[in-house]
Design a protein around this nucleic acid. Structure first.
Lengths: 337, 337
DNA sequence: TTGAAAGCGATACCAC
DNA sequence: GTGGTATCGCTTTCAA
């Protein structure tokens, strides 16, 4: 357990000043080719690697971004971790994970700020107005991912967000189901107060309204697999059961299809049309032919990273990015190649 | 974008020395109740939070653990992130994510070490002997998660590992299939050279051998969903198809069942017994009744955390932890409650 | 118990 | 281009 080699030691071996060592490892600093070679040689023999923490202390940039999530059961979120982490790594940034329930947001935020992160991506927890203020005060940009700020009295001016066009997505689904000629259309909500759920439902019912059609029935699944299963049982228990259902996300849609097929012996999509929302890998919907509104993780993460970079440089560009989404029919099993 | 408040500023407001502030925020330091109160009051009004980076610089403990993974499609791994992160957070540690392909292990490791992490958990990439040495030399404990060190000439003395009892698991599966009276038993391998695959297969074939039974057929799926689908097509294309298959992990087992049911119109488990291996959430195997060998993520992560703590304190306790696993029959959809 | 002072390992600014 | 020096925010002796 020996201590790591320091720039000072390298300097001594290379017969140069510590500053020279520092410059050698700083992109675009002015060092002569000669000293540069000497330093690199010495560094190599000593196994020197600059201490990122010490550097952060003086540069005031940790190159660390905090990612806050709650539970990762929904396959959409692991994908977010993967893509975000990859994209940030390319630019020399790294993701520090924070798993937290909604109620501990306060404590978690304190921890986060202690690490002097350069930015925060909140992908699962809401941020109270007070906490957003704390971050703004500390000069740390916060990006809400897949959710928008609490629609309180005053709009939060200091919190950005990246969402997909949930409203339009909801509209697409309703149009599709009407086109297919469905008469008894149901909706299975996620978390009642989440912005994603609200917008998707708003778009969905708007189109139904415009067509003069009533919603057949409605239940709540809290974005949970098990609760969605139960909700499905309730929705389809009646004699006059729905012939189509829009489920607020793919994770729940899969749960619903399980119940419909295995418990209730209904055929999907022949007996019931099921439409989901999100972007989950094929491994998740493998055995179903799922119709879904896709919000591209790739695009959303890309937007997030762009926002982060601009805000970390102090820019105050556009704040609420809405990524378009599209209706997709997914095949369960690919044809053999 | 104002700079964070420092201990110095708090000290001035509280009319004490900076040292006093430091002590107040250090567990078990000697501070009088009086100054302690003054400091806390001042800290509160200024919104002071100690700078973790500066602290790490002097204490030589970052309280950061690096977690290295490659792809997160397999539902087993998100669960690892979640559990590991939660358990570490409880003790004041945090997870810094590194997504990496096998071939960039070198570059990634350099980045990792720059962050002065207190430990490294490698859950997806292999670690070369040279890299392991580098870490050992730097005094950073490395835990291989769900894989064991390259079985080179000399056993790696400085790399610990946490795995499940893959060999016994493989044996269990073979025993089960023999018990069920299967005659044409196939094996679908994961990554040929991975320790998990090797051990599972070794245990599996050992029991078949002991029973004097030949393996019917064998294919390779590389732990990938798509390649497992293709492998399934190959395995079951023959007239004399298998009546049972042991798939090296759940992720691939699900892919196989998709192909069997949807493409080949075979019933599982009536026509073919499929057995998997791992620990994935219900959302992953939702629509199947999956027989699988469960390696508990919870247990494995627990063991990992224990190992980390003991090694971070310089202890050199037991190094290769093997977590027991068990055979489980999972029901696809729960009965209504 | 307390405060002054010496680092931790690096960068930034400064004359040279 | 180069080396000296102050500094980043904190913990840690060490006297008092």
């Amino acid at each position: 357990m020996k201590s790591a080699t320091t720039a000072h030691e390298v300097a001594r071996l290379a017969q140069v000043s510590q500053s020279a060592v520092s410059r050698t490892f700083t992109a675009g600093a002015s060092v002569s080719e000669e000293t540069r070679t000497k330093v690199l040689a010495a560094a190599k023999t000593l196994g020197y690697r600059p201490n990122a923490l010490a550097r952060s202390l003086i540069t005031r940039r940790s190159h660390i971004v905090a990612l806050v999530m709650s539970y990762l059961e929904n396959q959409f979120y692991p994908l977010v971790i993967e893509k975000l982490s990859q994209q940030l790594q390319k630019q020399g940034y790294h993701v520090l994970m924070f798993i937290s329930e909604m109620d501990e947001a306060d404590a978690v935020l304190t921890e986060i700020l202690q690490y002097q992160v350069d930015g925060i991506v909140m992908a699962s927890t809401m941020l109270s107005s007070a906490l957003a203020d704390t971050c703004a005060h500390a000069g740390v940009p916060v990006i809400l991912f897949n959710r928008i700020a609490d629609t309180g009295e005053h709009t939060r001016a200091d919190t950005s967000s990246v969402t997909s066009d949930n409203y339009s997505g909801g509209r697409m689904v309703a149009s599709l189901l009407l086109e297919r000629g469905h008469q008894r259309i149901a909706f299975l909500a996620g978390l009642e107060n989440s912005s994603t759920n609200l917008e998707r439902e708003r778009g969905f019912t708007a189109v139904l309204d415009e067509a003069g059609q009533q919603l057949h029935s409605r239940a709540v699944g809290h974005y949970s697999f098990e609760r969605a299963q139960q909700a499905a049982r309730t929705l389809f228990a009646t004699r006059d059961r729905p012939d189509a259902v829009f489920v607020a996300n793919d994770h729940m849609a899969i749960a619903v299809m399980d119940v419909l097929r295995l418990e209730l012996k209904l055929r999907v999509p022949e007996d019931v049309s099921v439409v989901g929302f999100d972007d989950v890998p094929q491994a998740a919907w493998g055995s179903y032919s799922l119709t879904t509104v896709v919000q591209s993780v790739e695009d959303m993460v890309g937007a997030t990273v762009d926002l982060l970079y601009s805000q970390m440089q102090g820019e105050t560009g556009p704040r609420n990015v809405v990524v378009p989404c599209r209706l997709v029919e997914r095949l369960s099993v690919r044809a053999a190649t």
